[in-house]
Design a protein around this nucleic acid. Structure first.
Lengths: 204, 204
DNA sequence: CTCAAGTGAATGAATGGTCATTCATTTTGC
DNA sequence: GCAAAATGAATGACCATTCATTCACTTGAG
């Protein structure tokens, strides 16, 4: 676009192009899968030459990493901000769950990259775990521990296991939403999941 | 192995080789991932020539399909048999959950193929859904409905959502088990998951 | 102001390596 | 000996990555 003036601008334009490549990659990966996506598909989608991709990323894999890192970073920092003012552990978990489903529910392509491409290789999963997933699970675990101290949650349960259960349930909602032909809102599922997570399915 | 005698046997021997290829493929896919696995790796692992693979399977992808189909078929038919004598819905869910974790916990390579390779492509997931996953989820759903009729489970919950929650929680246990460096038994997690699923984490 | 030289971003054709799949030939079992 | 089964070298596609070249723009000398 309108390029003028000096140094400042060439930097700006470079960042924009990096952004454009990432956006194009999310779209292409979501539609064809990481392994079947060609770098030339991404370049085409971003409307740049194949070689230009390599001015901004070392390799195809680095693009995928950038997607994970950037999203997890913003996801975790936003999440922490959202819950820091909340007192009760159960309300914290509610906000985390809503945020989880709102975020992924707002961008189907991004959700596909997270739910599908990311899980398709143990290597990616381990890297993703290092990239922030472990920290995310840990925030849930700590909140459950807090709830136990607050006397809101049962003290006989293992918080590590509970955090996996809650995450697994939310995760499955997202996966089902992606695979479903029918368009429906993902976020409202948070309430249903938490109702079961808090109170169980057994008749009181 | 020991191949001898007539018509009966050449069929048998062919079946054995097919088996051997499938076992080799599970091992190779689990270690390198579907897309990075070479057909020659599978042939090598099965101790046969590359070309021989194509006498038993139309393509590399068909091998993956065979793995899913065969496992889901036996998994579902065994599952149905296991629960048909059980009366109470909660006991049925317990048996299903135990079976789920026992099966995958008994064969790490198979578990990796199911948890990782299978999830790595929307195409595979859809095919897998058709292959029996949908039926599996439906068995859980029906059992929850039964439990509601039996007055064991809350009637205000949507059984479809509940079935996803239970499945998602179990699934996450398996995924964590695969990624964990520490060797631990997977099956006992069924009890912990069900405790939360039935009773919730909230203090009564 | 004007234009020649300089700069580095962008290009896309070429490269090099990787496999899935095929098939002419060999081996095996009877 | 002869089917059927197995072999593995050869084939043909495919694609990530590279790099020589182009091009748009800036700079500064006159």
């Amino acid at each position: 676009m309108a390029a003028s003036r000096t140094a400042d601008v060439s930097a700006r334009s470079g960042t924009d192009k990096r952004e454009a490549i990432i956006r194009a990659a999310i779209r292409v990966f979501a539609r064809k899968g990481y392994f079947s996506s060609k770098v030339s598909d991404i370049a085409g989608q971003a409307k740049i030459a194949d070689g230009t991709v390599y001015l901004y990323f070392k390799s195809k894999e680095e693009i995928l990493h950038s997607i994970f890192n950037r999203m997890m970073e913003s996801f975790i920092s936003d999440g922490k901000k959202e819950i820091e003012g909340i007192e009760r552990a159960d309300e914290k978990l509610r906000r985390i769950s809503e945020l989880h489903l709102e975020r992924l529910g707002a961008d189907r392509d991004l959700a596909i990259v997270f739910q599908v491409q990311l899980r398709g290789s143990i290597k990616f999963m381990r890297e993703f775990s290092a990239a922030g997933f472990a920290e995310y699970l840990d925030i849930i675990r700590k909140t459950i521990s807090e709830g136990q101290k607050q006397g809101i949650f049962r003290k006989d349960l293992n918080p590590v296991v509970c955090s996996k259960i809650l995450f697994g349930a939310l995760d499955e909602m997202v996966t089902n939403w992606i695979l479903s032909k029918k368009k429906f809102e993902l976020a409202p599922a948070a309430g249903e999941v938490l109702d079961v997570f808090f109170n169980g399915v057994a008749r009181a």
